[in-house]
């Protein structure tokens, strides 16, 4: 295996008395697509948010693309440019157009001129199939379109890793496909991706590895076929059975 681009070791996270992550190790290789599944409250979103330090791990280490994310000397805002994140509720800025959403960080963080940023922003919107929606505000877009703008906002910064936190959970079923399609394209372009989601079909087709988490720990992991068809742990089997019934 190539040198991992994401290396998290012994991650613990406490929220007050709640022990949400109980020592999680996660290594992700370049160009790998890792799927994280598990019941709600199992800590999968928290793990994802520890990787770009939206959540401060209580202990452990996180190295992304050679940068120690937890070192106080690390310029966290610079480091975060290399880690794109997509949220369940899109979190687009409602007071800006789609293009404004995509170009803000290009201008204010990456230091691009307005002209440069807009060229890059339009290219990113084109990649998600929304070149003709640049001037629309989020309120004028469907959920699926909003999520694709959110993906464009992240990839415009040319991240080394993309984190997806339940990217399709807030979408009407008929809009899920368009977002998964964009994620497939990203994968084919060689993007390293960590995806928290229950889209089993997508996981089967696209994932290199599926991780099952429960109660703040990784219970088991392996290729999608192994995890979905023939899980070795009873808890995994029970969970897979539950989500397949839906």
């Amino acid at each position: 295996m190539a040198r991992p681009i994401v290396e998290a070791r012994g991650i613990h996270k406490h929220f007050g008395a709640l022990h949400v992550l109980k020592g999680v190790d996660l290594e992700v290789a370049e160009r790998e697509l890792v799927f994280v599944i598990g019941p709600s409250g199992s800590g999968k979103s928290t793990l994802l948010r520890c990787l770009n330090r939206l959540e401060e791990p209580s202990s452990g280490s996180v190295v992304v693309d050679g940068i120690d994310m937890l070192d106080p000397k690390t310029d966290i805002n610079r480091a975060r440019q290399r880690i794109g994140m997509v949220f369940q509720s899109f979190n687009l800025y409602p007071h800006m157009t789609a293009l404004g959403n995509v170009t803000l960080a290009l201008r204010k963080v990456a230091g691009k001129s307005r002209v440069e940023a807009e060229a890059l922003g339009r290219a990113a919107l084109k990649r998600v199939g929304l070149a003709d929606r640049a001037g629309h505000t989020p309120g004028q877009l469907s959920g699926g379109q909003q999520q694709r703008v959110a993906i464009a906002r992240a990839i415009a910064l040319e991240p080394r890793v993309m984190l997806f936190d339940e990217p399709t959970s807030a979408l009407d079923p008929e809009l899920v496909g368009s977002v998964l399609e964009v994620m497939c394209d990203l994968r084919e372009s060689g993007m390293t991706m960590i995806v928290v989601s229950h889209e089993m079909g997508f996981a089967r087709n696209a994932a290199d590895r599926v991780i099952f988490m429960d109660h703040g720990l990784i219970v088991e992991q392996g290729p999608p076929v192994a995890i979905f068809e023939n899980p070795s742990q009873e808890r995994t089997r029970a969970f897979i059975g539950q989500i397949q019934r839906h």
Binding site: N77, F87, V109
Partner: peptide, 18 residues
């Protein structure tokens, strides 16, 4: 303003003040 707005902004590298 929903906290997700701040998280989205911070995840793209904007600092607190930005």
């Amino acid at each position: 303003v929903p906290v997700g707005q701040i998280e989205a902004a911070r995840s793209t590298g904007l600092n607190r003040l930005q």
